[in-house]
Amino acid sequence: MSPGQNLEYQLLDGKGKALGTWRYRVVNVGVDSVASKKGKTTSVASVQVKSGLYDTGNNVLAQQDLTFFCRNDTTFTDGLGIINYDALKSFKNRRLSYQATPIAWPNHPTAASALPNGGVLVQVSSPSVAIAKVETTQRARKVSGERVSVTVPAGTFSCYPVESQREVSTAARADLVLKNTGRQIDYYDPAVGIVKTEQYDSRGKLVQSRLLSKR
Score class of each variant (00 low, 15 high):
residue 183 R to S: 11
residue 155 G to S: 01
residue 142 K to Y: 06
residue 110 T to W: 02
residue 139 R to M: 00
residue 151 T to P: 02
residue 95 R to C: 12
residue 176 L to R: 14
residue 86 D to N: 15
residue 137 T to V: 10
residue 180 N to P: 00
residue 183 R to E: 10
residue 82 I to L: 09
residue 92 K to L: 14
residue 160 Y to W: 11
residue 123 Q to A: 13
residue 139 R to A: 11
residue 162 V to I: 14
residue 88 L to V: 02
residue 147 R to L: 03
residue 117 N to P: 04
residue 137 T to G: 00
residue 109 P to A: 05
residue 188 Y to L: 07
residue 94 R to H: 15
residue 160 Y to D: 07
residue 182 G to W: 06
residue 161 P to T: 03
residue 96 L to R: 10
residue 148 V to M: 09
residue 95 R to G: 15
residue 93 N to C: 11
residue 79 G to F: 04
residue 109 P to H: 04
residue 87 A to V: 04
residue 104 A to M: 04
residue 193 G to C: 09
residue 172 A to K: 08
residue 158 S to D: 13
residue 82 I to Y: 06
residue 189 D to E: 12
residue 138 Q to H: 09
residue 136 T to N: 04
residue 198 E to C: 12
residue 93 N to R: 11
residue 136 T to M: 02
residue 162 V to R: 02
residue 79 G to C: 06
residue 148 V to A: 08
residue 84 N to F: 07
residue 158 S to I: 04
residue 154 A to I: 03
residue 84 N to M: 09
residue 198 E to N: 10
residue 103 I to L: 08
residue 129 V to Y: 07
residue 184 Q to I: 15
residue 131 I to Q: 08
residue 183 R to L: 11
residue 92 K to H: 14
residue 124 V to D: 04
residue 137 T to M: 12
residue 107 N to T: 10
residue 160 Y to C: 05
residue 114 A to R: 11
residue 100 A to P: 02
residue 120 V to F: 03
residue 98 Y to W: 11
residue 153 P to I: 06
residue 168 V to W: 00
residue 173 R to F: 13
residue 136 T to H: 01
residue 127 P to Y: 02
residue 176 L to F: 12
residue 131 I to G: 02
residue 186 D to W: 01
residue 96 L to T: 05
residue 148 V to S: 08
residue 174 A to K: 12
residue 142 K to L: 07
